[in-house]
Amino acid sequence: MSTKRWAVTRYLFMEQLQLLWRTYAFILVAFVILPLLFAILTGNLSHYSFGSTLTDLGIGAVFGFFILVTMSLTYDNFKLFIQNGISRKTYCQAKVINLIGLSFGMEIISALYNFLVTAPARGHSGQAFLDTTVYSLYDHFLGTNLFVNILGYMAFNWIFFIGLGLTGMAIGSIFALLTKFARNIAIIAIPVLGFFLLVFLSNTSTSPSDYNLDGLVNFLKFLMGYHANAQPGYFNPTMPMLTMMVGCVIMGAIAYYFNQKLKLKK
């Protein structure tokens, strides 16, 4: 890795770690400490379970949200880097390296937390815990070896986090090119258009129409890993993983393309 790329990656990593630390500190205060104080003040301490509150934190979900948001922050870092003679290409590459590394680290921490803290606290076995996650559709496909299933679950989540981060990067790169006015319009218009699209889709699926969506439904099932008569738990996880990887490549390409267009706004 070139010196510059290494320097930018290290800088971004340290920035992300600091933000991540603050995010979890905020979550801890908001969802553990404050409810505890509230329970003490209202005399309902008997209804408060420190253990269950701590085990319900969902640190993986928090990280998913975190990586989506922080990866979308583009323009301020672009200004800093171009001021310091760093190219757009290096900035983008360092961001992706950082995303892959941080996601990997956080997925390991999240898995350790889930299987060593949350699952025992809830009285679940490792396999039973897997059955409560999104990966429950796939958690028997690789056999009965729990370790292998956990590895599959971790790989699934890792790719998902990378996809979320790349989506954030793509959105952030596009928004960084817009003026403040255009950005505000987009923030309002996109959810409204999305709502109308949903209404349109739900109407077409509930009322008789000229559209035959069977092909689309079968394709979506295929992407999800459904195969002939497969029961939930026995879906093939390779398909959604490949689908997510293709999504990652598309989002990465969009992020890179728009990142190359970044320029000073004033």
Binding site: D76, K79, L80, I82, Q83, G85, S87, T90, Q260
Partner: peptide, 20 residues
């Protein structure tokens, strides 16, 4: 254009505030 080697050999101090 988009070249770390050449961009690293120059520095522009501008009116626009590039720092957070």
């Amino acid at each position: 254009h988009d070249n770390d080697q050449t961009l690293g050999q120059l520095y522009l101090m501008s009116e626009v505030n590039m720092y957070n």
